[in-house]
């Protein structure tokens, strides 16, 4: 990865810009295949999931994220799981968090790695089996100086 990052550094230095490209969305077919792998083909609806993360990340090694799902979190109606997806990472499934009515609040805060600018996604499965999804676009910035220490 270091080689590629240095390449980006060089490219951006030559072009006089800070970024090698805009935020790219994953091709719809690839995204569908990935989601199907998680949901088993069930419909995924947009909404109910909030993905909070900086639009400009200081560094791809530790991007702070907060994922919250709109749910009463009762025995009858709660979030079962939240899957965090970063499609442009070498391994797109970042983590799966299992929650329940005993969680009280459907919110997880953590830090993730992003290999590139991308739209990160969170897929929530509810206790009725339905899937909901939200996302956020993140641009990953880099240090100006080469690091060899």
């Amino acid at each position: 990865m270091a080689t590629r990052r240095r390449f980006l550094f060089t490219l951006s230095a030559l072009a006089g810009i800070t970024l090698a490209g805009g935020v790219r969305a994953q091709a719809p077919a690839e995204r569908e295949a990935l989601l199907r792998q998680i949901t088993g083909g069930a419909a995924v609806r947009p909404g109910r999931v909030t993905f909070d993360t900086p639009e400009l990340a200081d560094n791809g090694h530790a991007v702070p994220v907060r994922i919250a799902v709109d749910s009463p979190m009762t025995a009858a109606d709660h979030v079962r799981s939240i899957t965090v997806i970063a499609e442009r990472n070498p391994r797109p499934i970042v983590a799966k968090f299992t929650l329940g009515a005993y969680s009280g609040r459907a919110q997880v805060v953590t830090r993730i790695r992003l290999a590139d600018n991308q739209e990160v996604l969170a897929l929530a499965q509810m206790s009725d089996g339905s899937y909901w999804m939200g996302g956020a676009r993140v641009v990953v910035t880099e240090l100006a100086c080469l690091e060899g220490g």
Binding site: H61, A95, F97, T98, L99, R105, V108, V109, R113
Partner: peptide, 22 residues
Amino acid sequence: EVFRAEMGSGMSANPLLQFHAL
């Protein structure tokens, strides 16, 4: 069990997790 995290290499080094319980 009130929380479970299955994690891959996309999680940051020295991982931090914050969640809730009733």
